[in-house]
Amino acid sequence: MKTCADCGRTVSGDRMKRNARGRTGRICKACDAARARKHYWHDVDATRLRRREIRNADLHRYRGYRRASRLRHLERERARCREYARSERGRAVNRLAVARWQSANPEKVAASRELRRAVQRGVVRKPTVCEILDCTRAGILHGHHQDYRRPRDVVFACSRHHEEIHHREPLRLKDGRLARAPSPSQRVNAPLDSDLASGQVHELHAVEPIWAAGVTEVICKPRR
Rank of each mutant, 00 (worst) to 15 (best):
F156C: 00
V124S: 01
A92W: 15
V93H: 13
R51Y: 13
G90M: 08
I54C: 06
A68H: 15
R63N: 15
R149Y: 02
V93T: 12
Y65D: 15
L133D: 04
D134E: 14
F156L: 03
R150I: 09
P151N: 01
E164I: 13
E83F: 10
E88T: 09
V129G: 00
R48P: 00
D134L: 13
R61A: 11
W41G: 00
I54D: 13
P127A: 10
E114Y: 06
H39A: 04
S69T: 14
R113D: 00
V93Y: 15
S112E: 03
R82T: 14
V109N: 03
R82L: 09
R137N: 06
A118G: 00
A157K: 05
R150A: 12
E107A: 03
R52Y: 11
D43H: 06
A99N: 07
E88H: 10
S159Q: 11
Q102N: 05
V154N: 00
R35A: 03
R152D: 01
S69A: 15
A68I: 14
A85G: 10
C158E: 05
R78N: 12
R100M: 10
A34V: 08
C81A: 12
S87Y: 09
N105F: 10
A138P: 03
I140P: 02
H39W: 12
R121S: 04
C130R: 12
R116N: 04
A92M: 14
N56K: 13
D45A: 08
E77S: 12
R61H: 12
Q102H: 07
Q146P: 04
H73F: 07
A110L: 03
H39R: 15
A99V: 09
L71C: 08
R80D: 03
S103R: 14
C31V: 05
E83W: 09
V98W: 09
N105C: 05
D43L: 02
K108L: 02
D43W: 08
S69N: 15
R125D: 09
R50D: 10
R113P: 00
E107H: 06
V98A: 01
A46Y: 15
H145V: 01
R121E: 03
R35L: 07
E131T: 04
R95H: 13
R50W: 03
C158F: 05
Y40A: 11
E53P: 02
T47M: 03
L96A: 07
A33Q: 14
Q120M: 06
A92V: 11
A36K: 11
V123C: 02
A157S: 12
R150M: 10
W41E: 10
